[in-house]
Amino acid sequence: MNLIKLLKIDLIKLSNYRAFWVLNILYGLLIVGIPAGVIEFLKWLDRIGEDFSEFNPMKIPVLHFPDIWQNTTYVYTWLKIFMAIIIVISISNEFSYKTVRQNIIDGFSRLDFLMSKLATIFVMSFASSLLVLITCLLTGLIYTPEFEFGDVFNGVEFVGAYFIDLFGFLVFAFFMTVLMKRSALTVFMLLIYRPVELIFISNLPRQLEFLGDYFPLQAMSNMIEVPFPRYAFQEIQDYVVMPFVGVSLLWIGILIYGIYSKLKSSDL
């Protein structure tokens, strides 16, 4: 079946599912709300500081072109767990209601089921990236004191990295759901996986230390480096780290194959 058809079928499933829409809207509000919150915070700093300081916090270029792209997308990558919860719930429902079984009985192949969910994950990641793009663009246009047009899209590739990071994490959540089947358990595992991965990486023996950067979530987070030390005059990588884009895409491929082989071999 073609992808658009599979996507449409999956969207009918979600169309009247209130939790799905509520969580998506909350996620959207967070994306729009964070830059707005930062601005308000800076204004507040400005107000309380104006009597005794020459320093104007509004001049810190956190939300100015071109810094804004890396700063916001880096912060947004911390929000992906919320969107992953939406994915976990909607897919674990298919197992707990046994509707995945009925979908197969009705004529889906296991690959059709996989692709229909991936299509939804892709659309959600894409829509989220689009919202990030628009939010950053507008925030930057409003608050950057002076800029040349060439600066506006300097760093827009961070939105692309944000897309890969989010899509990769959602595929990871899909993979965990197919393994665990229960939503609460899966969300718990998702929450503890990253700290466990970090602990594991930091305890690697010296000869294997280089491997640490290639663990799935570590590789994904390596695409966008922590930007804020630059305001303390430290050197940072202010570009998307391309080798890790490659590694992340590879992990996405491996995870999708993992989901496929799990679905293919199991009784539903």
Binding site: I12, S15, N16, N93, G107
Partner: peptide
């Protein structure tokens, strides 16, 4: 075919549920 108990999306209407089945079956 229906196996064991009736299996549908509980939060969807009868029509929407059948829409999914019809779309899968073409």
């Amino acid at each position: 075919a229906i196996l064991e108990t009736p299996i549908f999306y509980p939060y969807l209407s009868a029509t929407k549920n059948l829409e999914i089945v019809a779309k899968i079956k073409g």
